[in-house]
Design a binder for these strands. Sequence first.
DNA 1: CTGAAAGCGCTTACAG
DNA 2: CTGAAAGCGCTTACAG
Lengths: 337, 337
Amino acid sequence: MIMEPKGKKVYTIDDIARELGVSKTTVSRAISGKGRIGQTTREKVLSFIEEHDYRPNVMAKGLAQRKTFNLALLLPKDYAVTEFPFFKDCMQGICEMASSHDYDVIISMIDGDDLSQLQRLEANRKVDGMILSRAVEHSKAQEYLKSCKEPFVVIGPEEDTQIVYVDNKNLEASEELASIMLMKGVQKLALLGGNESFSVTKSRYQGYVQAHEKMGRQVHTELIFMDCENQLKVSGAVRQILEAGADGILCMDDAICTMCIESLRELKVQISSGIRVASLYDSKSLEYNNPPITSVKFDTVRLGKMAAGKLLKMLGEELQEDMQPLNYQVVLRESTQ
Amino acid sequence: MIMEPKGKKVYTIDDIARELGVSKTTVSRAISGKGRIGQTTREKVLSFIEEHDYRPNVMAKGLAQRKTFNLALLLPKDYAVTEFPFFKDCMQGICEMASSHDYDVIISMIDGDDLSQLQRLEANRKVDGMILSRAVEHSKAQEYLKSCKEPFVVIGPEEDTQIVYVDNKNLEASEELASIMLMKGVQKLALLGGNESFSVTKSRYQGYVQAHEKMGRQVHTELIFMDCENQLKVSGAVRQILEAGADGILCMDDAICTMCIESLRELKVQISSGIRVASLYDSKSLEYNNPPITSVKFDTVRLGKMAAGKLLKMLGEELQEDMQPLNYQVVLRESTQ
DNA sequence: CTGAAAGCGCTTACAG
DNA sequence: CTGAAAGCGCTTACAG
């Protein structure tokens, strides 16, 4: 436990220069490592700093360099409970990457297409770049950031080639999982989809379709239900799915899947023996469900890290770790046997 | 949609002074409202600013005033899925209050008793104060902040009178809900509790006990189960509760309650007719459950606002809205009839 | 290799 | 009521 003695002096670069009998230019150089400086001088400065626990004032440094060493994370104000795990993991990854480069993360909760918070953030110039955490089609926020020439990266798929983005391999994962189900003998595979305005929904939908196409199978459009936002909708969909004689259900995320399981339970349909079920996003509840549900695992913490990493790179930072492409993992469990 | 013309000049206070033929002192005064200044001069400056959309550089202002206009929100890195709604709402309240005073919120995810992130934040001096979002007994983080003389407020109950905190009325709410159940005729009221190291758990536990004491009823210690962190534990507890002949269950939060409902369903025990159930934290799933579950509603967004408000006050800001005490609301639903 | 000086964009005693 | 000047704590050409 580190205790700061009560009246401890907060050193400035001036103090150090004075005490060491050098100029503050020299001190600055010793710290930043930029510019030529003698070995001995550098060590003298560095050891003084170490000993007196000097930490440069980041705000002052920022003013001089016209930087803030802050990133903004833009969170949708209205995100649903079911999206928490995703945002939380993203946030963690972003924070880790940022702080390993001595950046901090400012959060801003933005409300749909209301740009006021964004404008405030932009006007205050307290961040060097921003991360938009939910890709939405035709997003006003994105337009705005572009028009401000603010460096930013989007989390989610992005068609605009001028925009930097990171994304889980949603399409591929969806296609793979759907293919597996079809190969395992599912004849009529239903789809329970999420909010249609989210880009991720589109990707997963496409994966489902492509799996059918590549295997020369017909897509049963009457088995596709989008915007499954509550139990009522899901129950209705499940009922129709069963009536239509489907023998498999692909759920776009764990929340939808949880509701789907609940419906099946009410209707007394056994998972696996009665109908096969899989989810495109893994969570504890699916793993521990009885029977355990087949699903796709994404590494969202790493997704967040990559987002922050790309942004830092745009800001001219050197990344220590070079970034491997993102991947996913299909976890086969009892529900699709 | 506000478009910034591409090569738009970013004005500084110097530019304005020059263009208007006044000193920058005057411009500064017109903006801040501090110091004497002529009506006409002020208006001239203000309208120029308005017209050219000048926004002062917050970093520079901060350096001069030795402030940062940032608050830190300390989030536990390991928080559980079940705590999301709470943290999310807190965060929203904090962000709203902060931004209405032109402060920003920096997040830092801290890992149990590991102080490294906290030390970094402290050393970088990029925040004026901090909000600790989960009260834990004997928290190292709290000790550390105290020793640094960093202004901070804790969300959760706090016995140390030197520490500023905000808290939902957990004890009172718990007592009231337990009392209601007892008054409605519950003879043996079981308790499913959360993580014992969290302060909130302690408060709710006390409420349960006090309800019994004030009504001259005996506390059945064999009906109390703490640390109900997963379905397995809850199912075990519920079985014992039923065997012991309890006719009511008070769940400390909505996640525990959800697991409790699941157990009861498995055991084919009807809620309300078979056993009464209530929860100390409301969420959509409880409201829409069949039967709907009696629970306590807290206004967590406002809790967050109050936390930020108290901190801002400590930092010398004038709060626009004066803060009403927090309250809660018992929502009686079918599960306790 | 090292330093004096100007500058980042503000605020704030102090003087008038 | 207004302004010149110093200062916040750094960085960075420029000169030596």
